[in-house]
Amino acid sequence: MRDYQIDMHLNTERKQKPAFDQLQFGRNFTDHMFIMDYSSEEGWYDPRIVPYQPVTLDPAAMIFHYGQTVFEGLKAYLSKEQQILLFRPSKNMARLNRSNERLCIPKIDEAFALHALKQLLIVEKDWIPTSEGTSLYIRPFIISTEPYIGVAPSNSYRFMIILSPVGAYYKEGINPVKISVEQEYVRAVQGGTGNAKTAGNYAGSLKAQEMANVDGYSQVLWLDGKEKKYIEEVGSMNVFFKIKGEVITPALNGSILDGVTRDSIIQLLNYWNLPLVEKKISMEEIDQAHKDGHLEEAFGTGTAAVISPIGELFWKGEKLSINNGETGPLSRKLYETITGIQTGTLEDPFGWRIEVASEVVNN
C-alpha cells in the first residue's frame, strides 16, 4: 500500500438523518465523501475526506463528452455489537481496476482505496442503518476531468467514494418480480464493455427498462447481442435458473459482468454440494423446461438486491409463471445465508466478512 496521508476536513454541523425504517434506495447521502485526484505528472495524489458537496468541472471535461468513467457498488453493515462490517470489499476494488484497464483509466492502489473507504466509514458510522433489510450503500467511482474535446484517454481523473443509507432495492423486497425478455435491444456484446462497470452500459439499458416498466414489469432479461438467443443478465444483475434440481447460470463470456454476489452464490452452492453448471443457456431451453414442468426457480443476484426471485417471464407474448409466482426455497435460503453473513448473524466459513477497526488512522 502506498504511503499516502489522508487529509480530514470534517463538517461541524451534520445533516438531519432520514427515518432509517423508511429508506428508499439511493436518495439520501451522508455528511462526507472521499476524493483523490490523478494527473499524468503526479499520479494519484491528495487523498482527502471532505464534506459532501457538488463537484465543479470544466464544461469541456472529457467525462461529459466521451463517458470515460467506472464505478463500483458494495455495502456496509452494523452488527449487534456495533461493529462496522464489509462483505468481500477486496473483490470490488479488484474489479474496479479491471474496469479501469478496459476504459484506459490509471489503476488505483487497491489496498489504499480500501483503507480510505474504511476511514470514511468510521467517520460516518452513525449513518449505517440497522433496520431489517437496510444497509449503507457504498459507491466508489472515477471520472475523467481533463478539459479537452478530443477522443483520447484523459490525462486527469478524480476518484470519489460517496455513501448512501438504503432500504430494499426493489419495493417487492424478497418477493418475486416480473421480468420481460428483451428481444429488440441488447445490453452488451463480446468485445465491448459489458464486463466492465461503466456508465454507458447502464445508459444503454434504460430504453428497454422503461418500456418494460410501462407494461408492468420490473426489469428486462437480456439476451446475447449477436444471436439474441442466449441469456446473459437480468436488469443489472446476474441470473440463475434451477431446472430439475440443477442450478444453471450463464458462463462469463466477456459481455457478462463478473458479479461479487454471483461468485458468492457459486461458492455457497458448491459448499452445499448442490449441482451447479456455468454454461450458455438459451431462452428456448428455459421455455421448454417451463413447458415440461422442470423450471423450479429463477433469480437475479447483485449487490443492491442480493437475491431477487423471478416469479414470471414474459417472452414472445406468453407469460411463464415460475414456482406459482412465489419465492422458492433455494432463493430464500441463499438470501438468508448471504445477508446473515453480511450482517454478522451467521457464521462465515469463507472469510468473506471484514470487520472495520474503530479508530481513524492516516496510513
Rank of each mutant, 00 (worst) to 15 (best):
Met1Glu: 11
Asp3Ile: 12
Ile6Asn: 01
Arg14His: 15
Arg14Leu: 14
Lys15Thr: 14
Lys17Glu: 11
Pro18Cys: 13
Phe20Ile: 14
Gln22Met: 14
Arg27Met: 15
Thr30Asp: 08
Phe34Trp: 05
Asp37Glu: 10
Asp37Met: 06
Ser40His: 12
Ser40Val: 10
Glu41Phe: 10
Gly43Thr: 02
Asp46Ser: 13
Asp46Ile: 09
Tyr52His: 15
Thr56Tyr: 13
Ala60Thr: 09
Ile63Glu: 11
Gly67Thr: 07
Lys75Glu: 01
Ala76Ser: 09
Ala76Tyr: 02
Tyr77Leu: 09
Ser79Asn: 08
Ser79His: 06
Leu85Gln: 07
Leu86Asp: 00
Pro89His: 04
Lys91Ser: 13
Asn92Gly: 08
Asn92Met: 04
Leu96Gly: 07
Glu101Val: 13
Glu101Phe: 13
Arg102Ile: 14
Pro106Gln: 00
Pro106Lys: 01
Pro106Cys: 02
Lys107Pro: 14
Gln119Ser: 03
Gln119Pro: 00
Leu121Arg: 00
Asp126Pro: 11
Leu136Thr: 00
Leu136Arg: 05
Arg139Ala: 09
Phe141Val: 03
Phe141Gly: 05
Ile142Val: 07
Gly150Gln: 13
Ser154Asp: 00
Arg158Met: 06
Ser164Glu: 05
Val166Met: 03
Ala168His: 10
Tyr169Pro: 05
Ile174Asn: 03
Lys178Arg: 09
Tyr185Phe: 11
Ala188Met: 04
Val189Gly: 13
Gln190Ile: 13
Thr193Asp: 10
Ala199Trp: 09
Ser205Asp: 06
Asp215Trp: 08
Ser218Glu: 12
Ser218Phe: 11
Ser218Cys: 10
Val220Thr: 10
Asp224Lys: 06
Lys228Pro: 09
Val234Gln: 06
Gly235Asp: 03
Gly235Ser: 05
Ser236Gly: 15
Met237Leu: 10
Asn238Ala: 08
Val239Glu: 04
Phe241Lys: 02
Ile243Pro: 01
Ile243Met: 02
Ile248Val: 12
Thr249Val: 09
Ala251Ile: 14
Leu252Ile: 13
Gly259Asn: 03
Asp263Trp: 08
Ile265Tyr: 01
Gln267Ser: 08
Leu268Met: 07
Leu269Glu: 03
Leu269Thr: 02
Leu274Cys: 02
Val277Gly: 09
Lys279His: 07
Ile281Pro: 02
Ile286Met: 07
Ile286Gln: 00
Asp287Phe: 13
Ala289Met: 02
Ala298Tyr: 00
Ala304Ser: 08
Ile307Pro: 00
Ile307Cys: 01
Pro309Gly: 06
Trp315Thr: 07
Trp315Ala: 11
Gly317Leu: 02
Ser321Pro: 10
Asn324Val: 12
Gly325Ser: 02
Gly325Val: 05
Gly328Pro: 01
Ser331Thr: 01
Arg332Ile: 00
Gln342Pro: 03
Gln342Cys: 01
Gln342Met: 05
Gly344His: 02
Gly344Ser: 05
Leu346Asn: 05
Gly351Asp: 05
Ile354His: 15
Val361Cys: 12
Val361Met: 11
